[in-house]
Amino acid sequence: MCLPESGKHLGIAEALREAIAEEMARDERVFCIGEDIAVPGGWGGAFTVTLGLEKRFPDRMINTPIAELGFFGVACGAAMAGMRPIADVQYGDFLLLAADQIINNIAKMRYMSGGQVTMPLVMRAPVGATGRGSQHAQNLERYFTGVPGLKVVAVSNAYDAKGLLKAAVRDDNPVLIFEHKLLYGSKGARAEPGAVDATSDVPEDDYTVPLHQAAVRRAGSDVTILAWLLMLHYSLQAAEELAAEGISAEVIDVRSLSPLDLETLGASVRKTGRVVIVEEGPKRGSVSAEIAASLLEECGEYLRCPIRRVASADVPVPFTPVLENAYRPDVPRIVETAKTVMQF
């Protein structure tokens, strides 16, 4: 990233807040809708992203009842009628309550209307296991990446968070943004134990990050490691350890989960011939399965060895830290798996 001198250093929650505020200031059609997002004395949503915005935009921060199916439907209708809503679920797990509106209406309306309808709608959802047990922890990406008509992105640092959110707001299609609870950098009473630093320098000037591009975070020549959200950060740590052992890993932030940027991913695979995909969430039916299959079709002939995946066991997210830590892929497992593909 090339940054101007006037940049500032932000966490993801702050960067998203800035992006939302700037887009709302730029375009009167943009508004936020969600639970506990705009309560004076409240928390600014579950992870402080919208903190204080109700003071600046009293009419465009819409606090809803606990009614996910309902307010996603409301967002859908408002988007069809020319507004540009940003809908927020407190935990990604609650997307499942809104899934009917998202999958049956929001994603399909343009197609089934023969192109009459435009659906400029942004949806934001935090994911990741964080000591909260099975229903506030799931990685929901897998359930939405296969929905035609929906763009799905994942933000792993503050620069991207701001740029992708702005791009999503300006896009004329529904975009689902996945965020990770351990990457927000939420502060004070809302801070998360086990958080990972995802702050970055953010320019003062307006910018966007394209919704359809992966990002090479570390260049390398021996093995391609593909990851997003928290797992990207773990993969970068793993690459550091691998480098110490003479293995050069190229780490790519998949970032655009649907559609996949097969050009960027493929270019790396053609170079290294070895692929490790890292995903938080059960291996079965995962995003990494789709990535692996797509790479086989795209550039399978360049592979020197089978694609390997580091993912969670096929179980719900357990509460107790011993089991949650076993569930969540970690740096040693990524290192070990990268070494196994280096044997080819």
Binding site: D93, F94, L97, G131, R132, G133, S134, Q135, H136, P318, F319, T320, P321, V322, L323
Partner: peptide, 29 residues
């Protein structure tokens, strides 16, 4: 998070319950 917990440590605070005592594990949705 102990294995002696009512849900063997798999449930946690939001999902406590014991079917033998007439309580479905907490539903946090």
């Amino acid at each position: 998070g102990a294995t002696t917990g009512c849900c063997r440590g798999k449930g946690g605070s939001m999902h406590v319950g014991n079917m033998a005592k007439g309580m479905v594990p907490g539903i946090a949705i």
